[in-house]
Design a protein around this nucleic acid. Structure first.
Length: 423
RNA sequence: GUGGAUGUAGCUCAGUUGGUUAGAGCGCCAGGUUGUGGCCCUGGAGGCCGGGGGUUCAAGUCCCCUCAUUCACCCCA
């Protein structure tokens, strides 16, 4: 195959069966959003580059190595959205949502772009859904988004196990950072190359390095450095979640690679996803609106990857076949083509032969994609009749054209009932 | 960005120590007579063997490069 016509690396063509599952997930996200009072928000696929550099953080991998950036013909620096939260914070500020009655609940479903090395569950373009809760500093807000996440995961058959941590606030995090760097410096020789680099720009990340487990285990725990406010916040979030029946576990090594987080961070993993096991992740980001030019507003939220959730969901969200009709043309003519449109007019999903195939071939086709076949044309048509046949049991009857839709609907309902019967 | 594995028909895969016209199953199309699917039988279409270069009398088989997929690192959804 000529490589010019291959899709770009890390992108996907989603064919009807999978697109149907994706659409079901999308509707499910919308239902959950509605249940908790979250309103849909849409923002542009690209933003001015500064929104992400300042919002997400200039030292993060997302902006340093993974950006799809370009300068347009007018000389404006633009970037394809790599994640949702920063762009929504920009929209929150720009549209004056800070004047809305608090809290403001928003959700989105949108494609994201990151130039990473693709592997299972990691794509250069992928769909993310996300929930953002603005205006409340209370632990109940953190806990509410956990409830939303749990509801969503349970709906696709997963039982979430939530890892949480608090990375502190502007008051207490610097003290911890200092202590951590001091500790790591003293073990500098034992650190891997990646971690030496991290030491400078994001020392907290050394904690979840896979190679330096020993060093990381001996590191000071941030819990010992939390200020009173951060401590009681974290404890309240964990208690509220546990009270709601959500299995939560504190992971002292959990730190997320985006700069805007404060206090609460959390992740949900699923072992079926392999190395890219994060099915959803989020936390609190009280300082984000300031980063994108607004007044401070407390906020919490999370985002998840649709492709990953679909993978983890396995057979759930599979598309049961909608019972439909197929009209076969008997002999020459367009009677079948006309009868089909009559059925569709009555709201019955109907296909008809467009290949001028033999009746036998049409029947075979019908067997593949429909539950009821209508034979139109020939001698019966002269008498105003068509034959209706149900494929599951071979039941067959000649009916007047005027009664066609009614009969087909009735027989299709019979099919549905059969499928619904537990065996 | 780093390392390993893998690219043969639409799909899943065979292809001997390099050797003539590259195979199977499934799927697809047609037929097994006249207006009836599934099962069965027969036939058919469909492959620059991912792409490029090299070694050789001869390359799907060996070597190099490249593209893609995949697993892991990294990072994250």
């Amino acid at each position: 195959m000529d490589e010019r016509w291959q899709r770009p690396r890390g992108t996907q063509d989603v064919l009807p069966a999978e697109a149907e599952r994706m659409e079901r997930l999308r509707r499910l996200v919308a239902q959950v959003a509605e249940l908790y009072g979250y309103g849909a928000i849409e923002t542009p696929v690209f933003e001015q580059t500064a929104v992400f550099v300042d919002g997400v953080g200039g030292a993060t991998d997302i902006v340093q190595h993974e950006r799809y950036s370009f300068v347009d013909a007018g000389g404006v620096a633009l970037t394809l959205r790599p994640e949702g939260t920063a762009a929504i914070a920009r929209a929150y500020v720009e549209n004056g949502l800070s004047a809305w009655p608090k809290p403001v609940r928003l959700y989105y479903w949108a494609p994201m772009f990151r130039r990473e090395r693709p592997q299972k569950g990691r794509y250069r373009q992928h769909q993310q859904y996300g929930f953002e809760l603005y205006g409340s500093p209370e632990p109940t807000a953190d806990a509410e988004v956990l409830l939303v996440a749990r509801r969503l995961l349970q709906a696709v058959g997963l039982s979430p196990h939530v890892l949480v941590n608090s990375i502190g606030c502007d008051q207490c995090r610097p003290r911890y950072r200092e202590a951590l760097v001091a500790y790591l410096d003293s073990h500098g020789a034992a650190l891997c190359g990646d971690c030496r680099r991290r030491l400078a720009d994001n020392p907290l990340r050394v904690l979840d390095c896979k190679q330096d487990q020993a060093v990381a285990r001996g590191a000071p725990d941030i819990a010992a450095f939390w200020c009173d406010a951060c401590r009681s916040h974290q404890e309240a979030v964990v208690a509220l979640a546990a009270e709601a029946g959500i299995p939560v576990e504190r992971d002292p090594a959990l730190v997320r690679g985006i700069d805007y987080y404060s206090r609460t961070v959390f992740e949900v993993h699923d072992p079926s996803l392999g190395a890219q096991s994060t099915v959803l992740g989020g936390g609190r980001y009280d300082g984000l609106t300031v980063r994108v030019g607004g007044a401070p507003v407390p906020a919490v939220g999370f985002a998840g990857g649709a492709e990953r959730l679909l993978m983890a969901a396995g057979a759930a969200l599979g598309a049961p076949r909608v019972p439909s009709a197929y009209v076969a043309q008997v002999g020459v003519g367009h009677q079948g083509w006309q009868a089909a449109e009559r059925l569709r007019g009555a709201g019955i999903p109907t296909e008809v032969d467009l290949m001028a195939r033999s009746l036998k071939a049409q029947m075979k086709e019908a067997g593949r994609r429909a539950s009821v076949v209508v034979l139109a044309g020939g001698r019966e048509w002269e008498d105003g009749l068509v034959t209706v046949k149900r494929l599951s049991d071979g039941r067959e009857a000649a009916v007047a054209l005027a009664n066609l839709a009614g009969t087909v609907r009735e027989w299709l309902n019979g099919v549905e009932a059969e499928h619904a019967e537990p065996k």
